[in-house]
Design a protein around this nucleic acid. Structure first.
Lengths: 145, 145
DNA sequence: GTATGTGCAAATCATTTGCATTCTC
DNA sequence: GAGAATGCAAATGATTTGCACATAC
């Protein structure tokens, strides 16, 4: 299986665009962890490793990473989007606490059948899904009246 | 069944906050349609009806509407969040085109069982979910190489 | 009466853009 | 060599905040 850098190289070539060291460094940093990330945090992580990458370059890369299927939007919080690497990661869904933001990841295979059904009904070429279940976590629900 | 204004009154009283005509006008406008909305659009709709509501009041009300369960975040697009009224509306999920943004709403009852299971496993008091399936719509998929 | 809500304008924060320079292909 | 990508700084756009006044409870 190709790694994320190779996938990106194929993608970028096929689009007639250019690969650069800056882009590979950003992708490496994203995939060095399984965690969700946001632009500012990623910028600081790179900066902490003395990789001289501007925020603008990250902002310019994100749409390409989304389009290539390497990452996905995870959720909007604290005034900005959070993303997650998906290439090479087993798909998972999120269970989030409305009150404290705590998130649990869980696997749910049954959505696959729903995707197929939708593809057939609406003629879509379905690429994936995001399921977020929300409510109050164990601690928060007991703190409420 | 209570209407949305009554639900809000109960909610706001229980929080020890205050209800106002401005808030009721905003809620009325949101629930006058089934559509998704965003803050700016809602502001213009109210302004078009000579309701003098500032954007700041809308921004300040949204978190309360979310917390009360009257509305829900629908998706992030064009640089801002879009919301949808959920109180009194049958729950639905979204099938969105990655390329043109076209969205189809569909019903899916099976998620309810997943919610119950999660509530039991993780001790959450589950309030709802958002499922977004994405891919290329019929037109867009045929436009690609 | 007190604390909350409102409108307005200014401030803030995330994201985008213009530009001169550097780098890929 | 031509077109893309980069870093930086300035511009933009969404959202938040400070404040003086109004108003709900």
């Amino acid at each position: 299986m190709k790694n994320e850098i190779e996938v990106f190289r194929d993608f970028i070539r096929q689009k007639g665009l250019r690969n650069t060291p800056a882009r590979e460094r950003i992708i490496e940093e994203i995939f060095s962890r399984h965690d969700h990330f946001d632009v500012d945090e990623l910028y600081l992580r790179l900066r902490g490793k003395n990789k001289n990458i501007s925020k603008a370059s990250i902002y310019r890369l994100v749409p390409l990473l989304l389009e290539s299927g390497l990452i996905q939007e995870a959720y909007f919080e604290d005034g900005h989007l959070h993303y997650e690497p998906i290439y090479g990661h087993e798909h998972h869904c999120h269970l989030r606490c409305i009150s404290c933001g705590k998130t649990v990841e869980f696997k749910e295979k049954s959505i696959h059948a729903i995707e197929k059904e939708l593809a057939r009904t609406y003629g879509y070429d379905v690429k994936g899904h995001k399921l977020e279940v929300y409510g109050y976590c164990d601690q928060c629900k007991n703190r409420l009246p």
